[in-house]
């Protein structure tokens, strides 16, 4: 056997080793236990809305006939070996994006997933931080020449002053 043929054979065997499990996996039907199917069905049903008009309830919680029919459909698809993503796609093809309990994380929907809950509050927090720093800096400046009468800065005032302060604050309220 020539050296070249030996190398070609080796590559072929290696490719088969890599590709075979994938082929086997994709051609076999997913054989889950009924409990596993039920758990997976419940997880999928949490992500999908019942469109029967009972107020945007997810399939998992809705007890109407339409919800039961859809849950049965999910079980059937799971038994047939479909993955969660494939089942989602089936529902999307049938009812559009509104069938999902939350907007799909893609394109325009990033506004609701990232910009509103994270970017805006972080920017607001930064703005507040800058404002607070500016305020506190302004307050500190004239205090540079001041000498504290007694005690360290930030220490609790003596009891009689504390009581007086409490009393005055209470009166203010």
């Amino acid at each position: 056997m020539s050296k070249r043929l030996f190398i070609a054979l080796g590559i072929g065997i290696l490719s088969l080793i890599v590709v075979c499990p994938w082929i086997i996996n994709s051609s076999l039907v997913y054989s889950a236990t009924p409990e596993e199917i039920e758990t997976e069905c419940r997880e999928i049903a949490k992500e999908l809305v019942c469109l029967c008009g009972c107020g945007n309830m997810v399939l998992e919680t809705c007890t109407c006939g339409e919800a039961s029919k859809n849950k049965e459909f999910i079980r059937k698809q799971l038994k047939a070996g479909k993955t969660r993503l494939q089942i989602f796609q089936l529902f999307r093809d049938k009812d559009g994006e509104r069938v999902f309990a939350a907007p799909v994380k893609e394109g325009f929907n990033w506004i609701i997933w990232v910009i509103v809950p994270y970017v805006v509050p972080v920017l607001a927090a930064l703005g507040l931080g800058v404002l607070l720093l500016k305020w506190t800096k302004q307050r500190k400046e004239p205090e540079l020449t001041a000498t504290p009468i007694s005690g360290k800065e930030g220490d609790e005032p003596p009891d009689q002053y504390k009581e007086k302060l409490e009393r005055e604050l209470k009166e203010l309220e």
Binding site: F100, A101, A102, P103, I112
Partner: peptide, 16 residues
Amino acid sequence: ISEAVRGQQATVTAAY
């Protein structure tokens, strides 16, 4: 907003 901008109905529930 989704319907006005994309013409695509969206649902936002507890999942979000």
